[in-house]
């Protein structure tokens, strides 16, 4: 196995070595906050499930990063957790409740993926944070003081007080992300879920985002789930990483993201773009080359490895799926 020096991984452990370390780390967290047990979900009449047989536990206070390629089922898993999709087989429990009930109980704070429409919407950052109370405020009354206080408190917590009264369209990507996190925090959730949080955020903002998440975790001990296809986002602050490419390929500490695991997880993207290729060779090449620091670079540079027929949907023997 090639050793890999990268910002998020000081050294590569063998899979067996890592697995035992991962278990001891997980035991430091509290009771399970989110439990997936044999979860399978397919859209409509699709013959292939979007996610298949996912079994995973996220413990209270744990910061989980869900990493996977485009179309790997990350957002589907997230929507199932939020109760926005239903009809899955297996079971999902959020703090012991069904996802729908958990959503009604407002125990989950959600930071959605950014979209282009937001920049020209004529509202201030503070108004965006206040939107969290929209479904709870009767139409005939003014916004309650408790909601305003909660919004102010959340804005202070994310350090957005300076710019929260400015129009949302005039804020930078990082500032908008803080506003969105403040909106999620304003309902005082126990679980924070972020969907592709660093899209449109510059490099400096990414570091600030990592610091912010670490601060929030120290202050509130929130269970945090970050969903992304970008390893940098996941490395910004996760205790454990779940690699999802339709099935769960591994659930480990970030240091367990070996070239084999990454190659396995991103094989779908490679296969979709280049056809059948020997992804393990690419991943290994990428990790030994300092200029290749994450899987998307692997995808951009198909290299000159020999092609090898492979079944994209079949997990390899090297996967570290845990019971």
């Amino acid at each position: 196995m090639a050793l890999c020096e990268s910002p998020w991984e000081p050294r590569v452990q063998s899979l067996g070595e890592f697995s035992s370390a991962g278990y001891s780390t997980l035991e430091a967290f509290g009771a399970p906050a989110i439990e997936y047990s044999g979860v399978t979900f397919a859209y409509g009449h699709a013959d292939t499930p979007a996610i298949k047989d996912v079994t995973l536990a996220v413990h209270e206070g744990e910061r989980l990063g869900v990493l996977g390629p485009n179309g790997g089922g990350k957002s589907t898993l997230l929507k199932l957790t939020m109760g926005l999709l239903s009809g899955n087989s297996g079971s999902i429990r959020v703090l012991g409740m069904t996802p729908q009930r958990a959503r009604r109980a407002r125990v989950i704070g959600y930071v959605p993926q950014r979209h282009e429409g937001e920049s020209r919407f004529p509202v201030s950052g503070f108004q965006v944070v206040l939107m969290a109370s929209a479904s709870r405020t009767p139409w005939y009354s003014r916004t309650p003081k408790s909601a305003i206080d909660a919004a102010r408190e959340a804005i202070d917590a994310v350090g957005a007080s300076r710019f929260c009264d400015r129009p949302i369209g005039t804020l930078s990507g990082g500032q908008v992300q803080r506003i969105m996190i403040a909106r999620a925090l304003s309902i005082r959730p126990r679980i924070l879920i972020l969907d592709e949080p660093l899209v449109g955020v510059d490099v400096a903002g990414q570091q600030q985002f990592a610091d912010l998440l670490a601060n929030l975790h120290r202050t509130y001990r929130l269970t945090t789930v970050v969903v992304s296809h970008d390893i940098r986002t996941i490395a910004a602050g996760s205790d454990t990483v779940a690699c999802l490419a339709r099935t769960l390929h591994s659930h480990t500490a970030p240091s367990g993201l070996t070239p084999e695991v990454l190659g396995e997880v991103f094989r779908h993207d490679v296969a979709a773009i280049f056809g059948d290729v020997h992804v393990h060779a690419h991943a290994a090449d990428a990790c030994t080359d300092p200029s290749h620091s994450h899987p998307p670079n692997v995808l951009r540079d198909p290299g000159n490895s020999a092609s090898k027929p492979s079944d994209a949907s079949k997990p390899s023997r090297g996967s570290t799926r845990q019971p």
Binding site: M82, L84, R103, R104, R106, I108, Y110, P112, Q113, H115, G117, E118, F121, V123, V128, M131, A132, S133, A134, S135, R136, T137, W139, M180, R183, I187
Partner: peptide, 24 residues
């Protein structure tokens, strides 16, 4: 519009977020 103003604005700004925060 007066009755539905808050959910409407939330939905118009951020549809997926509105759903997640309990807006129909």
């Amino acid at each position: 519009l007066v009755i539905a103003r808050r959910p409407l604005v939330f939905w118009a700004y951020d549809e997926s977020g509105a759903r997640a925060f309990g807006v129909s």
